[in-house]
Design a protein around this nucleic acid. Structure first.
Lengths: 190, 190
DNA sequence: ACCTGAACACCGTTCAAGT
DNA sequence: ACCTGAACACCGTTCAAGT
């Protein structure tokens, strides 16, 4: 017998997939594996660490080959991949956003976007701020979208139309701002 | 005796101020008021509703007179007021962001920004998307900043300098994007 | 109307002890 | 190394009953 970390993470992802984040407790996961909850603490320091591993697994499963050429295309590709990976599991956005905020995982997309911008010639400070601004948007928008999607599937009529367009438009706003800012100090133009 | 809603909210804000969001439980709040936890359910439908009232109270306490003239100044003023109001209480950003995401409160800033943009002549769809993009940024950035501030006060060295500059820069990126987008379709320019 | 008391169905985490 | 069993210190919420 003897479970490995990856077995536990896999079972945790399956639990998340079926019942959502609120059912992903150490006790339920233990019961699901046929083990005492305390046994999980031999594999993970605490629940946050386990959730970080689950978030990373979700992002890994959503990986796609890169095809874009310019920095705007590349950043958009990373953001769309991130969004889709999170949307593939109930409460995925909330989970990944929380893990990222705690600095325990989900750092791949940030590294990718930041290096894309740096290599495109943006100065490091701007690249860093732009990366975080873009990620705040992706996490915020996707959490909203998923909340509305899940609320709709439970009963409500769904008061919010157009999901995809809104994502592209919001992201475009930030990338346009970045393109414009990079041309020189904003305050110097009329 | 007999508590009113406002008494309970006031005590809840004090608890949040002293011990943070994780200590703001129905049981602790009840004990603090010298009442059974179940008594709170006569005044609030559930914990989420109570937290929404707490969030609204925090925003109310942070209100400032408006002085700006142009739409960029106005939106920036609203965002800075929102950020400062959340920073005034431990875990304030997390609390307000959660309440807003659930659609249970904290809707004032959104209404304010959206009407500012609409009155400035942006078409309704763009005004709505831009408003949400801006709010995702403010919530995300302020949650990050507060997490780092609180982590720093507990022990860590604090690996992140410059808070205020970063906020202005990120917000400026979005507002610049909005100003640029409004001039015409982005794809039509070289 | 407002509150008590007790219960229901849970949590995360620790730790001595077993194999 | 990996897991059990039991405990500690909690949660949100419901509901009959009291005043």
């Amino acid at each position: 017998m003897a479970y490995r970390r990856s077995d536990i993470v896999e079972r945790a992802v399956a639990l998340l997939d079926q019942y959502g984040l609120s059912s992903l407790s150490m006790r339920r996961l233990g019961a699901d594996l046929g083990v005492q909850p305390s046994a999980l603490y031999h594999h993970f320091e605490n629940k946050q660490t386990l959730l970080a591993a689950v978030a990373d697994e979700i992002l890994r499963r959503g990986r796609r080959p890169r095809t874009g050429t310019g920095w705007e295309e590349s950043v958009t590709e990373t953001c769309v991949e991130l969004r889709d990976a999170m949307l593939a599991y109930p409460d995925g956005a909330e989970l990944v956003a929380t893990v990222f905020a705690f600095g325990l995982g989900a750092a791949g997309p940030a590294r990718e976007i930041e290096s894309t911008l740096t290599e495109a010639g943006f100065e490091p400070g701007l690249a860093r701020t732009a990366t975080r601004t873009v990620l705040h948007f992706v996490f915020g928008h996707t959490t909203d979208a998923q909340t509305h999607l899940q609320a709709g599937s439970v009963g409500a009529i769904g008061d919010e139309p157009r999901q995809g367009d809104d994502f592209d438009l919001g992201l475009g706003l930030i990338l346009t701002g970045l393109r414009t800012s990079a041309a020189g100090p904003v305050s110097a133009r009329p």
